[in-house]
């Protein structure tokens, strides 16, 4: 493998890791607060992507300036996160809160099935993409390769910005502290006067927004087809499980690891491209059964 190829793989992986991290972060945040692994998270990614592409195509036709195109992506993610996230949480998850965890998981699977067809009804099956914003931001050279600024600078910057912002929000703001309290102990938090329901809804919508944002940022660089959500959900599952459920910094490192490993595989053993993330996950879980970054706790008897 030549140096150039290695750099290309690294650039691909870096950019992809940014998207993967955003989606996984949303998934792990929701798990932390609600205790539910949201299978429909992949649909939020897909809806975010399709909505963003639709808005961006429309804005590009109107010759809108670059910042409007970028704002359209974020707006799409916000709309999808608030509307779909809200519907999911209020309409569905609240109703199964006291049921078996297996059923809670299955409810989100059902929602995923519904969204999957809904998405096909709205956007059809032909590929969808809007690359305008990528070409507007242009290319730049680094280490002998040429890469788009959008993928190599903007996506990682957004991902890292979201990471820092979330850490700050969780540690320094009142809302963030309430979210952490609910994550650690729902009953105790409620007893302390925290509205766990409201916090749960807010955290869910935040997570949904992050999933949709991943899709929205991916929209200008990939062509969206039915099934994008499916691929993303299983992949972000593997990131979250490898990192350890609810681990934010862990998700960042694992997303990088898996993103880079995957793109190196694309250039070296393309047959294993899809398999690599799962091989990593299996290997990690064999050594650390609760994920890389989870500290195991003994059960009291």
């Amino acid at each position: 493998m030549s140096f150039e190829l290695l750099m290309l793989a690294a650039a691909d992986g870096f950019s992809y890791a940014g998207l993967l991290f955003l989606v996984s972060l949303g998934l792990t945040l929701i798990f932390g607060v609600q205790g539910i692994l949201n299978v429909a998270h992949g649909s939020l990614y897909a809806f975010g992507g399709y909505t963003a592409a639709t808005l961006a195509i429309w804005a590009a036709e109107k010759q809108a300036p670059t910042w409007v195109l970028l704002a359209a992506l974020v707006l799409a993610a916000l709309v999808v996160g608030v509307i779909l996230g809200g519907i999911l949480e209020i309409g569905l998850l609240r109703r199964v809160q006291d049921k078996d965890p297996v059923l809670q998981l299955l409810v989100t699977f059902a929602a995923f099935l519904i969204f999957e067809d809904l998405q096909r009804l709205i956007w059809g099956v032909s590929p969808y993409s809007s690359t305008e914003v990528v070409s507007r931001l242009g290319n730049f050279d680094i280490f002998g390769i040429t890469y788009t600024a959008y993928q190599l600078l903007l996506i990682p910057a957004v991902a890292f910005g979201v990471y820092l912002g979330l850490l700050f929000a969780l540690r320094r703001t009142r809302l963030g502290k309430q979210i952490i309290a609910v994550t650690h102990h729902r009953e105790v938090a409620t007893a302390l006067g925290i509205n766990a329901r409201k916090i749960g809804l807010i955290a869910f919508i935040m997570g949904a927004f992050l999933g949709a944002l991943g899709g929205a940022l991916a929209a200008p660089t990939t062509s969206l087809v039915p099934g994008v959500g499916t691929d993303m959900i299983v992949l972000s599952f593997s990131v979250v499980a490898t990192a350890g459920l609810g681990q934010i910094t862990g998700a960042l490192i694992t997303a990088l690891l898996i993103g880079l490993a995957r793109s190196v595989a694309v250039y070296t053993v393309p047959e294993l491209e899809v398999a690599v993330p799962y091989l990593i996950m299996v290997a990690v879980l064999l050594v650390r059964p609760n994920g890389l970054f989870t500290v195991a706790q003994a059960r009291r008897i």
């Binding site: 692994l37 599952f237 499980a241 899809v274 398999a275 799962y278 091989l279 879980l285």
Partner: peptide, 21 residues
């Protein structure tokens, strides 16, 4: 729990993708 589900998923995904490729 989740880890049981995810590990089974991961192993099946490896098999699925290898067969497809």
């Amino acid at each position: 729990g989740i880890f049981f589900g995810m590990l089974n998923l991961a192993i099946s995904m490896v098999l699925y993708s290898v067969i497809g490729k």
